[in-house]
Design a protein around this nucleic acid. Structure first.
Lengths: 213, 213, 213, 213
DNA sequence: CATGAATGAGACTTCATTCAT
DNA sequence: TATGAATGAAGTCTCATTCAT
């Protein structure tokens, strides 16, 4: 009763949502949506169960917030790179993939894709959000990079979106493996993400470049 | 329709496991493991809750049985195609992808991969089973097809497994999309799986073929 | 269809109830009423679950049948010994205890008492049956043996029933221990039943005999 | 009656365990372990089902807690009486029995012994706990009281533990009867516990005293 | 704002009992 | 008679959510 208001509480007030989202992200990626208990999210964020509900009215809303927080504008940075890049288009694509992997794929946020894929059918309004915020922009960004290569005469004239999807596929493949089997102690094929992505992008580049090297 | 009208207490020990596995497969793919209630599996199979437990001792075992039933021997067929194929290696890879999509990717069984990727961290022994039974054989099968192309002088000499993974990536990409966003009523990019796979395989083939056409 | 009627079934028809009661007795004593599954009773008796219900309409009735079958007339034999014994009353009591232990206490039937004590409050009509068939006759039998000792001047004049209960106590004590802790692999006090009963009867005899030896 | 009228969401972390243990004790004694439903325990304690599991992680642990709470330290008090008693050893034994009956045998806690005897074969670790915590100390306590009588020349030199068991037998007999048949509305022999215990202890005392009175 | 004790709907699972064969 | 597949009520336990403090 007579205790002074704790400083810790005061100090953290503004960062609470971020801490909760980070804790939730880590747990959703590790255990999936259903197997993540809200109490554990709270504990990992250093708050009580009740506090979590002050910020997010339900576990479903928390999940959506995690998705939105981590994936909104995810692609904008990539689009910026495309728009300002000055080297060859092949180097641009290689750069995009590397940046994407380092800044997203290999981070906890990369694991969201796994959870979203697993849960979209249970969260209908998430499907449209994710399509609008992630899939379409990514498609657009990659397509514009490919278009750049075609316009500059570097790439053959191919259907933009099919090529964009061909570029997406290895990224999705890697990120899903990384956050599922890659996190399990199994004896399976070794995937060095960086090398693998490089190999795959090289193959695809050779497939789309006007002059096969 | 032609079944005898008796609905109660049907005794069909022979066919029950298949019916239960089919019902479970459909629901696991639609809702995920955790969100699927065992009673609903039973109801969809036309039996009572208790009957399900007569055949599978727990929901977890049911899930494993679904995985095993649908995925074991899946790859063997592909390997058979590889071993007996007589055309060009490019045609072989195109055939493998088409067969795979028609016989697995586009069927309910294709949805298993999504569920396994989502849940494997919660089922440690499933990780090893799936790796041994699916991932490694698929890797091996595709590698052998690539090796065939190299041996026959059709393909460049590239690291087998990296190429195999490059071939896997579009398949995984497609199957996951098909059973997640592809099943949601969203307005997103159209993916015609068959066309897309063809485009992607062509790109990769051009990347690996000795003589770029 | 064309099999001859199995001889086994025919032969066993009359002994079925006995086999079922024996199996049920063993399991009820080992696990208690609730933890005994009817299927296991059937299996141990070598029949199917359905057959059990041909003989006993419910697990409760089976339990009551086990109790009644094993305990009805249990005491009659003892009463016969009392009525025809010719030695000293002290020897009579010693004999009664020994016979009781060998013929009942140490046998599976002895375990029933444990189960009855545990379950009477859940089986109201069993209470009266057991009181009438077991408790009162045992009381009567022991009292008559004591009365014999008093009448013959061997024992002091004491309240019959109190002495009878004093004689019962060690028997109940032994039989309950034998079928509970005595069947567990614990490191506790050693109870050699025969010796212990002898010691206790000797103490009590010394307590009731006119001439303390 | 004097409690504040608020009934919902009472927060009483301090007193809840005691209330739950009391409710569980009463029900376990009345119905046995298996036949007691956890929801009923909760209801009798005035809380919801979930609250019970906040304090005890399973029905089995609740049962063990009931045993420990009610029996631990039970014997210590008796040992204290033995160690500090100043009258004759016969009076000591009479006192021990009376105190034991009034403070334990006739209380709900006395019913625990019935439940333990009935269930111990299903709870292997309870067997050792109960042996260590109750049976051996009780044995020790009674033996020390007998030893006192022998050392003071009041009792004959008899095997300590056999005599201790002879003293235990009537107590066990009484307490089991009291909480089984004694709680049923049957017409059986009347057992006035106090009188009966007195009679039995007198008999045994006469059996062990050096000078038969 | 923050807490965490309390709730209760709902999930998995068991098993006594039924009944078509 | 005998079987054992099938049933479904009932029990244990979980956990998202609430709310008195």
């Amino acid at each position: 009763m007579l205790e002074p208001p704790t400083r810790t509480r005061q100090r953290r007030k503004e960062t609470r949502p971020q801490e909760l989202l980070d804790a939730a992200l880590a747990l959703f990626v590790e255990k999936g949506f259903a197997a993540t208990r809200s109490e554990e999210v709270a504990r990992r964020a250093g708050v009580s169960k009740g506090t979590l509900y002050l910020y997010y009215p339900s576990k479903e809303e928390l999940f959506k917030a995690v998705v939105r927080h981590n994936l909104s504008n995810l692609i904008a940075e990539g689009q910026g790179i495309v728009d300002s890049f000055e080297g060859t288009s092949a180097d641009l694509l290689r750069l995009l993939m590397r940046v994407w992997w380092q800044r997203f794929g290999a981070t906890p946020a990369g694991g969201i894709h796994k959870v979203v894929v697993a849960e979209v059918r249970n969260f209908p309004d998430l499907a449209q959000f994710y399509t609008d915020e992630v899939i379409l922009p990514a498609d657009q960004m990659l397509s514009s990079a490919v278009q750049r290569g075609i316009s500059r005469g570097e790439f053959r004239e191919l259907p933009l979106h099919d090529v964009a999807h061909a570029l997406m596929a290895p990224m999705i493949f890697m990120v899903l493996h990384h956050h599922s089997f890659g996190a399990c102690p199994v004896h399976g094929p070794e995937f060095d993400p960086q090398t693998m992505l490089d190999t795959q992008i090289d193959l695809i580049l050779r497939g789309i470049e006007r002059q096969a090297s």
